[in-house]
């Protein structure tokens, strides 16, 4: 692999702390934000590599955290991965600890939900922008379109889990790579 820029651990921490603090909307909204910051703005990691990390992250579960770990590792090895993961979780940890303390003291959930709800359309826009950017770069040939549409439909219309979609795509893609190699 080509040598990476040297990014300090403290910059990794600050970046993922910021992502963890401002990534409202959870899950994919955070991934969209991470992509915007780490791929588009800072150019820390290529789009393909980032998307590979996202695919691994989705296979393993909490993919917003996993993608952070992946980018951190890509930049600075194990120390970078741990730094990114801790930086990402830390703001949520502080917010939840504080809210838990309030909750177990007063037994009320603060009415933030309604305030946050108004921001949903923008969060969706952020995710769409990320998918358009990824799609422009990675969905070009007709066969890509078929895979992308099949994944979209199985995930959102037929309720197949992300794990199921990725495993199916992996089997398909591995088979295709072998076939192309054997028949090249």
């Amino acid at each position: 692999m080509e040598p990476k820029q040297s990014v300090t651990l403290s910059e990794i921490f600050r970046t993922f702390f910021y992502i963890g603090l401002t990534g409202f909307g959870g899950g994919m909204a955070i991934v969209a934000l991470t992509e915007r910051i780490c791929v588009e703005q800072k150019k820390w990691i290529g789009r393909s590599e980032f998307m590979h990390g996202l695919a691994f992250g989705q296979i393993l579960g909490p993919f917003s955290l996993n993608t952070s770990t992946f980018v951190g590792y890509y930049l600075r090895g194990i120390a970078g991965g741990v730094t990114a993961a801790v930086g990402f979780i830390f703001p949520s940890f502080c917010i939840i600890s504080f809210l838990s303390w309030l909750y177990f003291k007063y037994h009320e959930v603060p009415q933030l939900q309604s305030a946050l709800r108004g921001t949903n359309p923008v969060i969706i826009a952020l995710i769409i922008v990320a998918s358009v950017g990824m799609g422009k770069a990675k969905v070009r040939r007709p066969v890509d379109w078929i895979v992308a549409l099949a994944a979209f439909a199985s995930f959102s219309l037929f309720k197949v889990s992300a794990l199921g979609v990725l495993v199916a795509a992996l089997v398909w893609s591995a088979g295709r790579s072998w076939y192309l190699r054997e028949h090249a």
Binding site: Q58, G135, V139, V147, A150, A153, A169
Partner: peptide, 8 residues
């Protein structure tokens, strides 16, 4: 080959 599925 996985990437289009990720986009989806």
């Amino acid at each position: 080959g996985l990437l289009p599925a990720v986009v989806g």
